[in-house]
Write a protein that binds this DNA or RNA. Structure first.
Lengths: 244, 244
DNA sequence: CGGATCTTTGATCACAGTCAAAAAGCGTGG
DNA sequence: CCACGCTTTTTGACTGTGATCAAAGATCCG
């Protein structure tokens, strides 16, 4: 990794400290599609994702799969289990792209938490933010249509990856994105169609959002947390705007 | 309150310590229907619910209300905001029944956290558990039908309130329960009908679950976290079984 | 070029939301 | 004890959305 210090997990820490923490784990490459851990397996290790992407999911007894979320570089995986009183993984994690992780035995990582209070605080902040996001997500599933959720997701992708909404490539396959949004591939495809009238044009993985503001009106006017939406805030701040 | 020590928040602490914590806040009675705090208001206070029930909810700009959850005695309200970096409440809270709360100014409460590490750990455990529950809930909304979610909720009510499934009274109005489950009153009513064929009989607020095990099969066979379901575990342990 | 996977399109269906109206509870006051 | 008005719950008819199944197009990669 070029810069560990850019990871939120290490914010407010010295380069020496973050390097020492990384050194306490084992680096490992994970080919695409490989599991990092499996639902129900004994809980031994938590992982810091340095590069790539990991999909976390769960299966019901009757065979349906639910995608819980997609983790990117800088995310800590199975972090909630540090404070949980469980002894097995509560879901599975698979590499969505070839990924690089650092594996920490959980007891070892707990020692690190004690030794580095800033690390513990960063993790708490991340967990809290994540809880926030999943609450927003749950609400979206109730109040928004599939097309609106898709639109929200497109905007979020732009801000998160610092992409230019006027022209960018989807960072994941459409079916992966669909499952992240909790919808079927067919619905995803049809929803994209609906957004065409709002100036969203798609060819393959290339996306063009003619008027991000129009999309925003289409979505955020129905969202109860629009006031505190980080995506919205950075859109307005021009974090991913093309026009200089 | 008869016994503070029975609250999960104070588990592992001396009676003197928990009394001292309580003494740091202001006790207050809240009549039914009154707001405890409102979405968007400046974040000043967190609350410990000693008795009664509080419904937490949010409104979308176009007027829909989403119930986030129902808190009972022993719950800490706005606790996530202790670790969040927000300065206003992210949702509203209203007394569902006449309730008794202890109000803590947030800076004061943070001091208490430092002074009583056990308190901080209990709160973390509660937050973690709550995150877990809301994840389960989100999944249920995707994978289960309204009738199945209702059945799950009935079983959970029995275990949580230590009620006898063969004969108990609903602790909240049907419309409140419906909104907790994220469904309309009409759907709730119709779903109750569907459960009749599984031995669930309702007259007014009196419920009779002839065969809890049958209900369990109806629900949990489709749930990906059935293995680790606390409701299920206590059902099997006979925590609320009538037969001695 | 050929085979595999991913995506789109079409047709159909089931579920829960909506609107409207009837029925059941419930507390109040005569 | 009953009649009254109010709220909550139930029932009915209808609608919209997204899931499902099936098949046709794209796209990718050897």
């Amino acid at each position: 990794m070029s810069s560990l210090s850019s990871l939120a997990l290490f914010s407010g820490m010295t380069a020496a400290d973050s390097a020492a923490i990384i050194a306490a784990g084992h680096r490992r490459m994970l080919p695409k599609g490989e599991p990092l851990f499996l639902h129900g397996a004994p809980l031994t290790t938590c992982y810091l994702l340095l590069d790539g992407a990991v999909r976390q999911c769960r299966q019901t007894p009757d065979g349906k799969e639910i995608t819980l979320g997609l983790a990117g570089a800088g995310n800590l995986l199975a972090a909630t289990h540090l404070f949980d009183a469980v002894d097995s993984y509560q879901w599975s994690a698979y590499a969505e792209k070839p990924s690089e992780v650092v594996a920490f035995p959980i007891p070892r990582f707990k020692q690190l938490l004690v030794a580095h209070p800033a690390l513990a605080l960063n993790i708490l902040a991340a967990l809290s933010q994540q809880a926030h996001l999943s609450a927003v997500d749950a609400e979206h599933r109730i109040t928004l249509s599939a097309a609106q959720r898709l639109a929200c997701s497109l905007l979020r992708i732009c801000t998160l990856h610092r992409l230019n909404p006027q022209h960018f490539a989807l960072p994941y396959s459409k079916s992966t994105l669909a499952s992240t949004l909790g919808m079927e591939g067919e619905t995803f495809s049809r929803s994209l169609k609906k957004l065409a009238s709002l100036g969203v044009h798609v060819r393959g993985s290339q996306v063009e959002i003619r008027d991000p503001h129009a999309l925003e009106c289409y979505v955020c006017g129905h969202c109860s947390i629009a006031d505190d939406c980080t995506t919205l805030a950075s859109l307005h701040a021009g974090a991913c705007s093309a026009k200089p």
